[in-house]
Amino acid sequence: MPGAVRRNPALVALPLAAILPFFVDNNYVFHILVVAGIYMVLSMSLNLLIGYTGLFSFGHAAFYGTGAYASALLSLGCGLPFPAAFLASGLLTAVFGVTVAFPALRLKTIFLAIATLGLNEIVRLFLTNLDDVTGGPAGLPGIPLPDLWLVRLEQPQDFYLAAIVFVTAAYWALSNLLLKRHGRALKAIRDDEIAAKAVGVNITSYKVAVFGISAFFAGLAGSFFAHYITYISPDSFGLSESFAIIAMVALGGMGDLRGSLIGAFLLCVIPEVFRSLHDFRELIYGFTIMLIVRMLPGGIAGWTRNPGGWLRRRRNDDSRPADPRREAES
């Protein structure tokens, strides 16, 4: 554990955030930070697919929504206590992710992106139309606040502390995974699938596993969201939600977990800091994405590793895949 901490300053920084309540007493601030925490887990889990494995899953909100609805229904319908509903919704979403993975194995690049967008819409439409179960467009109100045996989470400040535990645990588990042979195998698949096969990586099982793990964490995030807001509706899990998570991953840096923490934090907090610019918030958001992809292809994390690198990149960049069209034809 100490070794892991030394390698991972984020493991120190995240728990340190727990001292904030000693200095700040503002529910609005805590609310923003809880939401940021949920997006941190969402963008880390999406980064696993897009950034680490090169699987362009563009419908992440489908997993997020599945977790939220599963958890809400398990608590409201079956009366499951929060901890059980939380874990169960993660596992159910993981099962859904694995189910999606099998057909997704056959698709690459833009075709996978298109199919997962379609999946996102299908999930949202089912949530909207299965009125009897999901409450239809009106959604599900009255989701119980989490009761964690000894403590009950009620105030945004309570949720803030819970979110710190949640994000830290997710980050710890994922960074352990990704630093070791599994993470390396995922990057190998992203870099060159044929070469990865040639050294004995079972591509199928890795892709299925990574879909399952990614969906698991997205499902947990959905559950956390549902029990925090206590009301969910299909509109929270549409394409624009998926696009927002993609933007966070791209801003933070593809294939960098710490980057996802930063990306989610910035895109949640910056718009709130500049409340006076409220009308221009979406505009700034959109331009940020456009500029980041163009100027900082490695995101903020890539930039901190190699500041100024993007200036040199233009001239001789042999890091790019030779040519996508060649791949398409072969």
Partner: peptide, 27 residues
């Protein structure tokens, strides 16, 4: 800017452009 890859970069930029267009018309 991305003729020779990475091939998903344009998709990401167009997501940004899409948000920009919606926001502009909204404004």
């Amino acid at each position: 800017p991305f003729r020779s890859g990475p091939e998903m970069a344009p998709a990401l930029v167009t997501i940004g452009f899409s948000i920009v267009l919606q926001a502009l018309v909204l404004l």
